[in-house]
C-alpha cells in the first residue's frame, strides 16, 4: 500500500490484491499518445492509477497534465479514491473550431 512499484515496472499480481483494479480509458490525443484504448492498472486513487498508466505508457506523460479525469460520469481530482472495477476516463481538452 505504501510502496509503489519501481519505475517502468508494471503492477504485479501481488499488487493487484492490495489495491483496487481499475480501468484507465484514453480518449483523443491521450489515446494517440498511449497507443491503446484502455489499460488495467492498480490504483487506490486517480493519481495512483494515472501514475501506473504512465509507467506502462511513457508517451502519456506530456499529455496528462492537461487532461480531465472522469469517474462514473463525474470529473474527479487526482486525490479522489477509486474502488475495484472503477473506470477512469482520460479526456484531453481541445478548443479548435
Amino acid at each position: 500500500m505504501t510502496t509503489s512499484p519501481a519505475a517502468g515496472q508494471t503492477s504485479g499480481p501481488a499488487d493487484l490484491h492490495l489495491r483496487p483494479t481499475v480501468e484507465v480509458r484514453y480518449w483523443a490525443g491521450a489515446r494517440a499518445a498511449a497507443g491503446v484504448e484502455v489499460d488495467t492498472v492498480a490504483g487506490s486513487t486517480v493519481a495512483e492509477a494515472i501514475e501506473a498508466a504512465t509507467a506502462l505508457r511513457p508517451g502519456l506523460a506530456p499529455v496528462l497534465p492537461a487532461c480531465s479525469f472522469l469517474v462514473d460520469g463525474q470529473r474527479r481530482d487526482t486525490a479522489a479514491p477509486l474502488v475495484d472495477g472503477a473506470r477512469v476516463e482520460v479526456l484531453p481538452p481541445f478548443a479548435g473550431g
Binding site: P65, A66, S68, L70, R75, P92, P93, A95
Partner: peptide
C-alpha cells in the same frame, strides 16, 4: 467548467493552426 474546470497549461494543447 464542471468537466474542464480550468484551461490546460499554455502550449500544452495545439490549436488547429498548429495541429
Amino acid at each position: 467548467r464542471c468537466v474542464f474546470p480550468a484551461p490546460p497549461p499554455p502550449g500544452s494543447v495545439p490549436s488547429c493552426a498548429e495541429g
